[in-house]
Design a protein around this nucleic acid. Structure first.
Lengths: 334, 334
DNA sequence: CTGAAAGCGCTAACAA
DNA sequence: TTGTTAGCGCTTTCAG
């Protein structure tokens, strides 16, 4: 079960140098003669030597691998959100040659921080103590997509309130007054803030958001379907709908078209995310774009700087989402 | 940048025992007196001690973490396939308290096997040498969803030929003769085998699969859309379509309904995967189910047994996919 | 049931 | 430019 054990010593013996020299070659330390370097490289190649990472980490006293902690609630993996983060963090780690240690958490299992240099928390759901304890251990932490100001921790988040606001603003500018929304999971900050920004703008314009136009969803297609059906059965159906995710918007589109209504002529619909799936289906979806992939990549770079000590101060980055106009919204006709 | 350093020694000091005893407590070695165990546990809790994983691994000479290597071609993360594997492997590792080291590979970057106990390769695309070299290093390897008999390596795969066959059989049993298919990426074994099984069955029944009914896709919605459009424009459109993934099937459904045709009355369609998304949309999708999540979980268990030496022999597991009948296929009417 | 001591494979002063 | 040596924090014989 242990791996074959070709150690730095074997390499040193074959190259007829000290292990220090081998170590220098491994670590690209310049002060090695051309001749010795060549010999060492030959030996490494010949023996198919790979340094023992555990030994390196132990000796160095630090560890540059990155932990990614993903909340494990049902359905999260079917969200564009989760996939983009995994993809972004994964690619960034690969290109920086950092090990990515992936965890799915239920919020309770404590994380042994000793085998990662830092941790990226993808959203915060029921696992604040986890974060607190990681911070207490002195591990650099970074939270994605949640403003967590009370913990004094690094975060990169999108301004979801502004996102909700932009959606409302756009629909309003098109002349809509009867505007409904399918929210995300309101236990997530994203869900709650999008609704908040959305509602606030409407209120400023003197538009009411009655209960019947407010469907509390959870980002799932199931909810979106139920919501859309409910809206359409209303005596006064909305003329526009804001869905807190593209997935939900797409499902609403399907329901609406099943009923024989047209988009955007009869109903306008706007999503959130800028999921590539927006481009497919019967109508290209207008949406609010949030740079998930980039956030994920940036997180790795930032955390990496924190781990290596290149960056010392707490970073709090807020990105602004933007409107992407496609075909699913049109002027209000009624 | 290094973590705070509370070591086993600090714990020993506080508990007034030797570090050996502390080690025993950490590792649940039974031969520790109740009294000492309690003292050590108190000290561990008080000091918030976490064993240094790198030191443990170095001392033990092995490492029970699991590497998951995912091919990095564009679009893979938008597949149900990839997500299910990540989810399944992730959950299994979490429940076995194994570290999961996640890699996205382009096939070239060699993998340093020294920091994982074993590796799961999620499919094999252009990275056979990687696998070979991991095997050569003595690292237990397991391949998901590819029969790779020439490498004498462990695998868990679904029988894709049978899957394709089941699809053809079902459509044929419904009376269809004009059957088209949208294939997956034919560079993947899954894509190629599904087509092969599908074609073979048809041939056995004396049914031809003309070029016009064969669209070489890549699992993307884009392809599916193009394929469906092409089929519908044919002078003699097919009465049934087999799509090599549910995603593609779903997109085809959308296209077909956009044209005003009904499913399954005008065209039957069957997918592959049993993606939960099958249940949504205008018509519940009939599909071929493959147990991706379970395969992923099983992979972890199997690999773990291989790593710890509990299992010695090569395992080659072939799972059979099964038909899931829902609403998208009906009898041939023409 | 307990502890002393010898490494695990590597890095990083320090000396040469 | 090189090599010697002392650890990094833990596990694991081996005595006691």
């Amino acid at each position: 079960m242990p791996n074959k054990k070709i150690s730095i010593e074997d390499v040193a013996r074959r190259a007829k140098v000290s292990i220090t020299t081998v170590s220098r070659v491994i670590n690209n330390v310049p002060t090695v003669s051309k001749k010795n370097r060549a010999r060492v490289e030959e030996a490494i190649a010949h023996l198919k030597f790979n340094p023992n990472v555990s030994a390196q980490r132990l000796a160095r006293g630090y560890n540059n691998s990155i932990g990614l902690v993903m909340p494990g609630y049902p359905g999260i993996f079917y969200s564009f959100y989760a996939v983009e983060l995994i993809r972004g963090v994964g690619h960034a780690c690969e290109s920086k040659r950092l090990d990515l240690v992936f965890h799915i958490t239920n919020g309770n299992n404590p994380i042994n921080t000793s085998n990662v240099g830092g941790i990226i928390f993808a959203d915060v759901i029921e696992n604040k103590k986890q974060i607190e304890s990681a911070i207490a251990m002195g591990t650099p932490c970074l939270i994605i997509n949640n403003k967590v100001d009370d913990l004094n921790v690094n975060y990169i988040a999108v301004d979801n309130k502004v996102g909700g606001r932009i959606a409302a603003d756009y629909l309003f500018s098109l002349g809509h007054k009867k505007i409904a929304t399918i929210t995300g999971n309101l236990n997530t900050q994203a869900g709650a803030y999008r609704l908040e920004g959305f509602k606030k703008f409407l209120k400023e314009k003197g538009i009411d958001l009655p209960e019947k136009y407010l469907y509390r969803g959870d980002y799932s297609r199931r909810c979106a379907r139920a919501a859309a059906q409910a809206f359409l059965e209303l005596p006064e159906p909305p003329t526009a709908i804001f869905a807190a995710s593209d997935e939900m918007a797409l499902e609403a589109v399907t329901v609406i078209m099943e009923k024989g209504l047209r988009i955007p002529e009869d109903i306008s619909i706007i999503g959130f995310d800028d999921n590539p799936a927006c481009l497919f289906g019967p109508v290209a979806l207008t949406t609010i774009k949030q740079p998930l992939f980039k956030m994920a990549e940036d997180s790795v770079h930032l955390l990496s700087a924190l781990i290596t000590g290149k960056s010392k101060t707490k970073k709090k980055v807020i990105l602004t989402p933007e409107l992407v106009v496609r075909e699913s919204c049109g002027p209000c006709r009624s």
